[in-house]
Design a protein around this nucleic acid. Structure first.
Length: 509
RNA sequence: GGCUCCAUCGUCUAGUGGUUAGGACACCAGGUUCUCAUCCUGGCAACCCGGGUUCGACUCCCGGUGGAGUCACCA
């Protein structure tokens, strides 16, 4: 049974790099009909950010990365870590660290001055005190050897004993370090695949030595390369202005596009396929084909992919996302009741970090006038704008004039190369002719509307670039819009004639 | 600095000894009888360097160079 996990720490929002390290284990779990587990690694109280957990659930839900178990909280599992720690103490493989942080810092400084790498084991106390929980508990490395191991992404790896040390298992605040907790948790939770960022590779010898001391068979490892920031070569991180996933959501990116993009950032199945559904990813993804080097985050490509998805989605589906991409994601049903109490204690302690939260009502992408319109009306408009949308956030500028009468903006016409050749009187004449003829048109049929427009062309002897542009401006007063017949049809005959008249009136004054 | 990893168009990548080095994004040009898009066609553009191995290296080996990660009572 395959069991994978995503184990974020609640220190802020989820950026795209984090999101990918949730995606990959999710895909592996689903591909093998296994389970995907969510574990919140909240052992560092000083970095805890209020609301961060909610953001994690929200992001995962939005991306469709539903977990089967959890969330587990490490702060609620202290007994378990203690049990394993005692095992180590009993075997003489863990000891209390008698030094103060300042003293350890001194060791570090002197090693640095001597240009030697700092290793705590060089300062291992001969007669450590009995561990009473107030000191840090350290692991005692006994087997200084070279480790060789296999990584699903990176291949066969090895590292020498210089990266082995007496690292801290349990901090003086009683909580375990990541180094200790994740190994215990992964074992207790029967995790089969540890999929995480490349930054952990250099700690692998430490982990491997601990697995041995604990008599635990290590799981399968896969270390995925970092996503690089758009500029520079640094790994993508919050410091470099990495955007949160929710930020992309509010910018009108579809979750499908985000998942598609993230999956392909550093992974390729060897074919020339570009668009993948989640189901396709589940069946085709493989860790062995993940790139070994970091991939740069290219927003242009995300945007392109988003456009593709907007066009490929059927109308009803797309419409649902434009009105609220959130409705299905706010349920907190996946959280166990026990979470409430843990939350309470934490909220009581005053966190030094700012709380993160967001306004969940902001995911209706339509403009103010459109929001008052019916679903049917909005869908009609969406049908003719779908091809023009790059993100959902383009909706207001592309559609608002359908729902509210636009202000005539004559400079738009004056600035138009073709139209400015006509005198104001000629422009008015054209609009009047159009209005008269269109009054007889059949607005139910797109073909017949096009016919009407073509006849108008013959009748006036104008070029399409002049006549059609003029009508288009009179109806929308927008720099760009859907095709003229489509626009007129959605507007309806009454509205169309009325807007033409409004333009004429405006021009006459 | 020690340790570890990585290296194909600007970007994401295909490629596993013999290819005109393929695709996609971006960019440029043209077309699709109104705008903006979409769509179509075409174009620009890459194997980090140096040694080997081999009949033959982008591909294998070694050495450089470059980049990244890591050396916490953070994860």
């Amino acid at each position: 049974m395959v069991r994978t996990r995503f184990a974020p720490s609640p220190t802020g929002y989820i950026h795209v790099g984090n999101a990918r390290s949730a995606l990959y284990p999710f895909l592996i779990a689903r591909q093998n009909k296994g389970q995907f587990i969510l574990r919140i690694e909240d052992t560092d109280q000083s970095r805890f950010v209020q609301g961060a957990e909610d953001l994690i659930y929200d992001t995962l839900n939005w991306l469709g990365l539903n977990w089967d178990e959890g969330p587990y909280y490490q702060t609620q599992r202290k007994d378990i870590y203690l049990k394993w720690a005692n095992k180590l103490i009993a075997k003489g493989l863990a000891y209390a660290d008698p030094y103060s942080p300042e003293q350890v810092e001194e060791f570090r400084e002197s090693a640095k001055a001597a240009k030697k790498p700092f290793l705590f084991r060089d300062h291992r106390p001969e007669n450590p005190p009995t561990w009473d929980g107030s000191q840090p508990l350290r692991f005692k490395v006994t087997d200084l050897k070279r480790y060789h191991w296999h990584d699903e992404v990176m291949g066969d790896l090895s590292a020498g004993s210089e990266s082995l040390d007496d690292f801290i298992l349990i901090k003086s605040d009683g909580l375990p370090t990541y180094n200790f907790a994740h190994i215990v948790d992964d074992y207790e939770m029967k995790i089969t695949h540890v999929i995480r960022g490349q930054e952990y590779i250099s700690s692998m010898p430490k982990y491997l030595s601990l697995y041995e001391a604990l008599d635990i068979t290590p799981p399968i490892f896969a270390h995925v390369p970092h996503i690089l920031a758009p500029t520079g070569n640094k790994k993508l991180g919050k410091r470099d202005g990495a955007k949160s996933v929710t930020e992309y959501r509010s910018e009108g990116i579809l979750p499908e596009a985000m998942v598609n993009f993230l999956a392909q950032l550093g992974w390729n199945d060897g074919t020339e396929q570009e668009i993948y559904t989640m189901d396709e990813l589940i069946s085709k993804f493989s860790l062995g084909k993940v790139q070994k080097s970091g991939a740069r985050f290219d927003e242009q490509r995300l945007l392109w992919l988003n456009g593709q998805w907007i066009r490929h989605l059927d109308l009803d589906d797309l419409y649902r996302r434009t009105v609220s991409s959130l409705t299905a994601t706010l349920g907190r049903s996946a959280s166990p009741p026990s979470r409430v109490s843990s939350l309470k204690t934490r909220r009581d302690s005053n966190s030094p970090k700012m709380a993160v939260s967001e306004d969940t009502s902001k995911y209706d992408f339509w403009g103010p006038a459109a929001q008052k319109a019916s679903d049917t009306e909005r869908k009609k408009v969406l049908a003719i704008t779908q091809d023009r949308l790059k993100t959902l956030a383009d909706l207001p500028s592309l559609t608002e004039y359908f729902f509210t009468e636009p202000q005539p903006n004559w400079p738009m016409i004056d600035d138009n190369k073709q139209l400015s050749k006509l005198s104001r009187a000629e422009q008015i004449k054209l609009l009047e002719t159009a209005k008269t003829d269109l009054a007889e048109a059949d607005f139910d049929s797109l073909e017949s509307l096009q016919d009407n427009l073509n006849k108008l062309l013959e009748k006036t002897g104008q070029k399409p670039a002049i006549l059609f542009s003029l009508i288009r401006f009179a109806l929308t007063w927008a720099p760009f819009s859907p095709g003229l017949p489509e626009t007129m049809q959605v507007l309806g005959k009454d509205n169309t004639l009325q807007r033409l008249q409004a333009a004429i009136n405006f021009a006459q004054n």
